[in-house]
Structures are given as C-alpha cells and as structure tokens.
Design a protein around this nucleic acid. Sequence first.
DNA 1: CTGAAAGCGCTTACAG
DNA 2: CTGAAAGCGCTTACAG
Lengths: 312, 312
Amino acid sequence: MTVSRALRDPSLVSPAARARIDAAVHALGYIPNRAASTLASARSKLIGVLVPSLSNAVFVETLAGVQDCVGPAGYQLLIGNTGYSPARQAQLLSAYLAHAPDGFLVAGIDDSNAIREHLKASGVPLVHMFDLVPRGEWAVGFSQRKAGHAIGAHLAARGARRPGFIAAQLDPRTMQRRAGYRRALREAGLGPGPEILTEAPSSVDLGCTLLRALLAQAPDCDAVFCCNDDLALGALFECQRLKIDVPRDLAIVGFNDLPFAAVATPSITTVATPRYAVGFEAARMLLRIVEGDAPRQNRIDLGFELVVRESG
Amino acid sequence: MTVSRALRDPSLVSPAARARIDAAVHALGYIPNRAASTLASARSKLIGVLVPSLSNAVFVETLAGVQDCVGPAGYQLLIGNTGYSPARQAQLLSAYLAHAPDGFLVAGIDDSNAIREHLKASGVPLVHMFDLVPRGEWAVGFSQRKAGHAIGAHLAARGARRPGFIAAQLDPRTMQRRAGYRRALREAGLGPGPEILTEAPSSVDLGCTLLRALLAQAPDCDAVFCCNDDLALGALFECQRLKIDVPRDLAIVGFNDLPFAAVATPSITTVATPRYAVGFEAARMLLRIVEGDAPRQNRIDLGFELVVRESG
DNA sequence: CTGAAAGCGCTTACAG
DNA sequence: CTGAAAGCGCTTACAG
C-alpha cells in the first residue's frame, strides 16, 4: 500500500521507497488495474460522452475538444453515438452507468424523463453540449436561434427577395436555427419562403436532392439557407450541374464552417460554430464539478460567427 | 449470487426466482457494477480501438463497423486517436491496458517493439485493421499496393501521358498505394511522374495547395492521383478556380470513395474501400478469438473497387 | 436449482 | 513516512 500511495502521489512516500518502487514497476512492467481502483475508490476516471452522430464532422471535432481537455487529467472516454434517437440515448446512458462514470457529457437534449431520474439517482453529473436550453442544468453551447437569425438577416440585407430553406434530420438544434431564421425574414418583411424539410440523415448527396426539390417548388428562389455545410456543398454541386450561377442566380449559405467551406469554388458563406471549444469547455466544466470545484456559472455561451464568403 | 446468475444467464435460475429478481431489479433501478464484475471475472467487456485520425471519415466509418459488431455482444469501446504517432499509440496501449481490455483493434502498424512485448506479455489479443502486412498476426484489410496499382493502370489506359501524384500525411498505407501506382506507371512505359509529398495532415484545403504546387512543377501534367478523396476535392475546387477543365485538361482520381465523390461536379473517380466492413470483420474476428473460437484464417482480404466516374 | 466461502487488486481510514 | 485490516461488488468453484 506504500506502492499504491507512491503510484497515486509520489510525494506521499520517502525518496528511498519511491526509487525502489519505480525500479520494480519498470522491471515487472507493472500496470495498475483500474477495475480494482474503481471498485475501491468509487472513482472510475471514465467519462461517458453521447453525441448524435459521428458522420457529422461537427461532433468529431467536439470529441477532440473533450479528449484534449480530459486526456491530460487521466480520464478515458466512453463514446456513444445515439443516432439522434432518444431511445438509443437512454439505452447508452444505462449501459454506461454500469461503468460508474465520473460524469457525462451529452450533445442533444434527453427528452425522456425516465432516464433523467435514473441519472439524478445515480448522482453522476452531466453537462449538456450545444444546447443552452435546460435552465438550471450545466450547459456549454451557443444560441442556435440567434445563429439562424443572423443568417436570415444577412440574406435579407444582401437583397434576397425569396430565400428558401432546406434541412435534414430536423433535430431540435436545426429547428431552433430555423425559428431564428424565419423570425429574421419576418422582421425584414419577407414571407417565410419555400422550405424543403426531411427527417433523413444529412449528407452531401441529400443536399443535391433537396436543392432540386426546392427549385421545383419555387423556381424564383434567389437564395437558400442550408441547415448545415454538407447540404450546402451538395446544393453547390447541384447548381454547378444545372449551370446555375452561385451567387448571382442563387445565393447559398451553410452552417458550421467545416474545413471545405472556405476553399470551395465559390467559397461558402456560413456560420462558424465553436464546436471544438464546446467540447473542451464542457469537459472542463465537468471536471471541475467532479473534482468538487464547481464553477458558479452553470451556463457558458460561446457564441458563433457569421462568415460571409462568395456563395452568398 | 442467485441474482448474479439470473442477470448473467436467466436460464440458470428457476422461473420463480427469476420473476422475483426481475421485479426487484426494476423497483430499485439496480445496475450491476462492471468494475466489480471485471475484477472478479477477469473479463472487462471493453475493447480498445486505436485509429490514426478521426477527422478522416474513413476511420469514423470503420469505428461504426466495429461498434455495430461488438455493441450487440455487450462490449464497450475505448477509442483512441493516435494522430499517426507511434509514440502516442504506445502511450494509448499502455493506458488502455490498465483497463484490462478483452482485446485490441488497431489501424496502423505499431513499429515500436517495446509495446509489442508489453502486449504479448499481457496476453490481450490484437487484430490489425487495414494493414495485411504483419504475417502471422491477425489482420483484416486489403492490399493498398494493389489499389494504387489499379489507379496507375487506369490512368495509363485512359491515355494519360504525364500523370502526377499528390499526397499528405505519408503514412505507411499511403506509401504502399504510391508504390503500387508507380509500378503500374512503369509497366505502362511511363516515367514516375511529378510528385508533391508533404507530411502535413490531409485536408481539402491542402488539396488546393498541393495541386497548385504540382502544376507549378509540371505544367504539362495531364492527370493527378490524389492519395485520398479530401485532397481530390481540394484539387477539383482549385481547378474550378483556375478554369482548368476536369477531366479534359486534367484528370483527377481520389481514394476511398467518400460520400461526396459520387455527387461532386464532375463526379470523382476513386477507389471504393471497404472501411465499414474492415471494422466489422476485424471486430468479429477479435470477438471469436476472445471467446475461444478463433478462426483458422488469420488474415481476411476484403478487396477494393475502382470506381470510374467523370473526373478521370 | 440455490447458497456459503473465498478472492479478484486496489483504496480508505486508522494505527504506529 | 509506513503498514495491517477491512471492504468495494461482483464471480468462481464447490457444496448441498
């Protein structure tokens, strides 16, 4: 148990003992057993992270932020992909609870109260990522509504007469962006405009399809807000195929500012979202809670930035 | 301990006992403690997965395959991003070893023998993903060399006189593709052709830069093999910016067949790689080994497919 | 089919 | 600064 002490905090042990222990550890290739440590200390050094998708680069970068924050502190992640399904989210939360994680980081609100109570009972702290919505709970994100509003206002200011909207997945964040966007159009005296919505998962390919559908429904459309950059890229490709000049004939605006947006031809106007920072700061908040140094602020709004480029 | 039995395998217990146990479990919201189970049974139901990158969609899809295979069997993943660094890989392997994983799945060969011995000593089985190289070890993948060869042969057959090559990251798999590609050019009586290589991480943006560098070095270049689709997309964007007609003035070929390749304008010729299947089959192989039913074959070659489209 | 005993490898809390 | 004792919550192996 002097060994146990030396491994956890070398300063608790005399230099002589430390040296002998270090030597033995090296000679034997000894690796402490975390299961035993977890059992004895009631600290697993595991953090459960739930994201709605991994094919969306946004969440991959969020995970990178989380990892960069918790890795140096010696925590490992249990990463779960909910596929935007509340049921799957509940299932993953219970499965992870068996591993006694020290905390949870979740992107996408959990609607089902069943799990909420499960969690409360478990006492495992949870920080929401992206959604600022559940007041009174820990959250790091930004206002999807304001971001959508910024885009609507931009298109109106740019002179769009009949802007359209295309969206996939229709998760709550997308719908919040839409709400802000529509509000901006209203404020600018524009109608709600044509919209093509589908619950299908988002993809570049789908962007092509939705753009065609939009133009079929509203041939006089002169701008389109795509609920994310993948869709925007597909829309751009489709315009190129149809010989529609972007932005002259049709302005295209995306969302997230994924790496390709800046270098597409034309480059894509979009909203840069602080996804890496959301992951990092949410993880930092969680670690502070776990380690008993909870921040006074329970919500952090990281903001966003409209990036105007060539496409609209 | 009848409870323990009922939870692991209900058939071991009488229906009456089972019913009472189920009722109690529900009433209490009881969740078994995996740390205790791991400690007592020497089975963690944890699998360590090491990939070189998560910003590359290839590995994200590989992880999806792994997850879809091991999830139903009740295993959780510890996912580590090595960032193409052998040192980081070694570090992650030791860190994960402390969690006593039942197995490892690794993309990218581990060069450092130090860890190899560590692993051997631990007795934790490991299956390589993508690389078929280490004979005598478990592996699921395909021949990068042959895939590169198929591209070289295709460009030559298509009439390219001076094909170029651009590549980033320069990991072993990329270099194997290059070797096969160069061999095909040689066989077709073409010189090795201009090449722009950089160890920088791959990105769409970098594709733009490398294409410009290639054309600066070899203005008479009439085709380019980009070591992956991200680079190919960047190259395509850059051609559009420079008003270079693809494929008339310059043919572009990528690698992986990421979702956007099929819908770009023009659509991108590439090699479809079985990345989801690599993950799934590697996981299946590992599970069989872990569960004492090791397959007789220790290597599975999943092949690849050249997908000829508009860009070259 | 059910149960009492021992132990997995650590950590905690308490003595020295 | 170091050590003996007890226990974390399960599972294994052995009796009944």
